[in-house]
Nucleic acid binder design. Structure first.
Lengths: 275, 275
DNA sequence: CGCGTCCGTTGATCAAAGTCAAGGTACGCT
DNA sequence: AGCGTACCTTGACTTTGATCAACGGACGCG
């Protein structure tokens, strides 16, 4: 459990990046977001430690410079704050620099549906491009930072820099393939498999960001996990228990210690699906 | 039931478009596809009746001309033929001109997962952009035609024509939002709701193409519907029965006559979801 | 420090959909 | 025409996970 806590701290540390001055704190989200106190700083892909995971992959230094000029600011976001809301016009895409975000929709019957969780290096707001307004809302489940990318300017730059264009298309396409995996999960996996996929996916993403792949601190509740995986919160809880009893995990509420990552990954593949 | 058959015939008619000469029949898919006899013709967006649904939306006539130059051919595809296979490198995207297509993946445990069904005006192969090779296979469930769009050339043209760029990005983004709807469906709807969504979606798409929104001829088996919706084929069959007993449908195997579209659409929204 | 709230756990019960099995129907092929 | 196969339907039974309910621990706040 001490290690789990260490994992947590590590996750939080990603946002520490010394070489930027804070520009004046700014009330960004006006009336509709009374609790917002988003600090903004000049963003820089040049020195961002996520530049090999994010939009700038493969860009030459001068091209990254152009991209930097376009991304005017980096925003600090506190837990519980929204970066955008469903229905609002699309002005920016948001690149996650640090923290942990949830994208969700609320249907007119008032039921929430979580579309995904987003970590460092991932892009939020792509589903808004089709209609020009955000389909989902995005909220921080942990303190973090996002880079604000003006969409129109990005499209213009994308026309100038083929490598950037290619990368942008890749990102859009990968969002599609990721959704296809989730569709497979939702349509044909048992509760146990779903949770195994969920954990191994988180594990891999944390690992990519340089954190422990086995010591996870979950930023979301059991209910949110269940919502995302098509399960009830009780089933999520019981399934965590089951995986713990089988010796695959140590579960201490939101601190998850993966004891047997191999076995978890195998559960992901093996076809004891239903249909 | 006669009307259902009429619907079917109508669907097939879309591929009749008199003003193109058939170029020589061509063995397109070489060794791996022994049954292929794909005839190809010069494609033309200019005169395509789907130009307001497809990639050329909003383009000026001269811009459509440029797009035409790039899309070198239109291919006839017979029922059961593949247009591409998972694992093959991405050379082309395919715009459906007519017919009915299924995109699916087979995981290494041999289980098929259907990602979607594609009708006229829709684009196949978008999930290949991320990795550069096709993630899924695409097969015709009915005779039809597809336009072959060289992806590299498309990216180049997209850089030249902002309107085309915008439209391409919209299409990619809409694929994402469509997948999100399916995720919601898979994660939180009852069998009855799933089928209602499935039918109303098909109905709307047929309608958009100019066909009857109430008289559907399904090109896929119960098993394929179930696979897509996260149900077994038996449940699909029973649920069709239930909807028929409730007076919403007439079901004659694959001929579906929608008796109460309004009611079907309402089932789609109402929140007797589970979690 | 003590209280209240939120979140997670656990148990008992129930229902929806999966599984297994047995026909039935349409359609293509010889 | 007759046969065979693939697909669909229907029934009986089982199972997984949802639902309802009670409780317990952690944390924040007065």
């Amino acid at each position: 459990m001490e290690t789990a806590v260490a994992g947590l701290i590590q996750i939080k540390n990603i946002e520490l990046c010394a070489d930027y001055d804070f520009v004046m704190p700014l009330e960004h989200m006006s009336a509709s977001e009374p609790s917002s106190k988003l600090k903004t700083v000049k963003a820089s892909c040049q020195t961002c430690r996520l530049r090999d995971l994010c939009l700038p992959i493969g860009l030459a230094p001068d091209e990254i410079g152009k991209l930097d000029k376009l991304i005017n600011r980096r925003q600090r976001v506190r837990t519980g704050q929204h970066i955008f809301r469903a229905g609002k016009p699309l002005h920016f895409l948001y690149a996650v620099r640090s923290g942990f975000f949830k994208a969700y929709e609320v249907s007119n019957d008032g039921i929430e549906q979580i579309n995904g969780f987003y970590l460092g290096g991932e892009l939020l707001g792509l589903d808004a491009i089709g209609s020009g307004s955000h389909q989902c809302s995005a909220v921080a489940l942990d303190d973090g930072e996002v880079c604000e990318i003006p969409f129109d300017a990005l499209e213009t730059l994308v026309r100038e820099i083929p490598t950037l264009q290619r990368q942008f298309h890749r990102i859009l396409s990968r969002e599609i393939t990721a959704d296809h995996s989730i569709m497979k999960l939702l349509g044909s996996m048992s509760a146990e498999q779903k949770l195994a996929v969920f954990l191994t996916s988180l594990s891999a993403r944390f690992n990519m960001l340089g954190y422990s792949p086995t010591s996870l601190f979950l930023k979301m509740s059991r209910e949110e996990i269940g919502n995302y995986l098509g399960l009830t919160l009780e089933t999520v809880s019981r399934t965590f228990r089951k995986l713990q009893d089988d010796g695959l995990l140590d579960v201490q509420r939101r601190h998850i210690q993966i004891r047997d990552l191999k076995a978890l990954q195998q559960m992901t593949e093996i076809g004891h699906c239903n249909h």
